[in-house]
Simulated assay, not measured.
Amino acid sequence: MPLSCSDLSVMYNKRKALESFSLSLEKGEIRALIGPNGSGKSTALHALAGLIRPAEGRASLDGVAVASISRRMLAKKLAFLPQQPSAPDEMTVAQLVRQGRYPHVGLFRSYDSRDEEAIEWALESTGLSDLADRSLRELSGGERQRAWISAALAQEAEILLLDEPTSFLDIGYQVEVLDLVHRLSREKGVTIVMAIHDINQAIAVSDRISLLERGRLRFDGAPRELAESNLIQEIFRVRGRFVQVDPNNSPHFDIELVRLQPAVSKASPA
């Protein structure tokens, strides 16, 4: 398995942001991490990427502890895209994508034909070849997100960790990014883990879903198995149901716009 973790726990000050989290991935799999705000999705991604050191447990890449792998060597296999990556607006798409080759080029080696091929492949895979000379300021939200994913692909990373890749995007751009994620998995064999808020998007695009609540893993399995449970209603405290719109596709969660009130404990008698 390309990436896994076992009994990961992460502390922020004295608070456990992630507790006994375990996950194992297969090559080319799309794994969605869902859960309410503060459930530990981003923390899990940072721990998998080796960006924070867990208090307990470990993340492993090809059987080797992520913490023991140098950042440059790790970047050749794994790419992490945070929620709001930043770069100068005047930078072109091609310049951004070229930065993705840094783990292979380093400070002293010049770009060679192998690097140029990787950059061209990354641009083509994300549909950005015709926009290579455009500045980032000229791009739409969806195009800019694709440019960042393209830079990650230029690393030739086999694993892509995405933190809320559709946040702040209009619905059309969200579909555009999710379609790219699906194609990268199916056509290029890239393993993808993404934290995502939209339940229906998670169900539509992922092979497996990990549902977190208050730092703990509450569910880990296929989207259809999640649909057959009552966990979405319980954890997100909404009224809703899964509707099978198309028998050939995953079920769609139809949410009533009514949030349930938290249970009020009765005062103990005096």
Rank of each mutant, 00 (worst) to 15 (best):
L123C: 06
I30D: 01
E143I: 09
V243P: 01
E124V: 05
G189V: 06
E26S: 14
S110R: 15
F168T: 08
V181C: 12
G240S: 06
P251W: 13
E228M: 08
L136W: 03
G172Y: 09
A94E: 12
F168Y: 14
S250K: 11
G142E: 04
D198E: 15
I34N: 08
V175A: 13
T43L: 07
E120P: 02
L161I: 11
N200H: 12
P54Q: 01
G106N: 02
H182V: 10
Q155L: 06
H252W: 15
R137I: 03
A49W: 05
Q201D: 04
L180A: 07
R224W: 01
Q95P: 00
A65D: 15
D133M: 06
R183N: 15
K41W: 04
D89W: 08
D62E: 08
T126F: 04
D179A: 15
P165G: 10
S113Q: 13
S70C: 00
D89Y: 02
F253D: 01
F236C: 06
P262R: 12
Q83C: 12
I203K: 05
E19C: 14
E156P: 03
Q174A: 04
L169H: 13
N230G: 14
A154V: 02
D7L: 07
K16W: 09
L184Y: 03
R237G: 12
E29C: 04
R208G: 06
L23A: 11
A87R: 13
P262E: 10
S265M: 05
M73K: 09
R186V: 01
L211W: 11
E256M: 12
R144E: 05
N248K: 14
S6V: 02
A227N: 03
S4N: 10
I232T: 07
A152E: 10
T126S: 10
K188G: 00
Q155W: 09
D115K: 09
E143S: 01
G100Y: 03
G127K: 10
R71P: 01
R186C: 00
R216F: 06
E56S: 06
L18D: 05
K266S: 12
V264A: 14
E156Q: 15
F253K: 12
L81M: 02
G189A: 09
V245G: 02
E120L: 11
A87K: 14
E116K: 14
A195I: 05
L25P: 00
V245E: 09
I159R: 05
Q261G: 02
L18A: 08
F168S: 15
V97S: 09
S22G: 14
G172I: 08
S24F: 00
L3Y: 00
A44S: 15
I30K: 09
I149N: 02
V205L: 13
A118Y: 03
E176N: 03
A267Q: 11
D115P: 12
I34G: 07
G240I: 05
L184Q: 04
T191Y: 01
F108H: 01
R71L: 09
I255F: 08
S22H: 04
G172M: 04
S268I: 03
H104C: 05
E90A: 09
G189E: 07
P2S: 05
K188D: 08
R109T: 04
L78A: 10
R183S: 14
D130V: 04
Q83I: 13
L231M: 11
R144G: 02
I255K: 10
Q155G: 00
A32Q: 07
L45G: 03
L162W: 03
P223L: 04
P85T: 11
V175G: 04
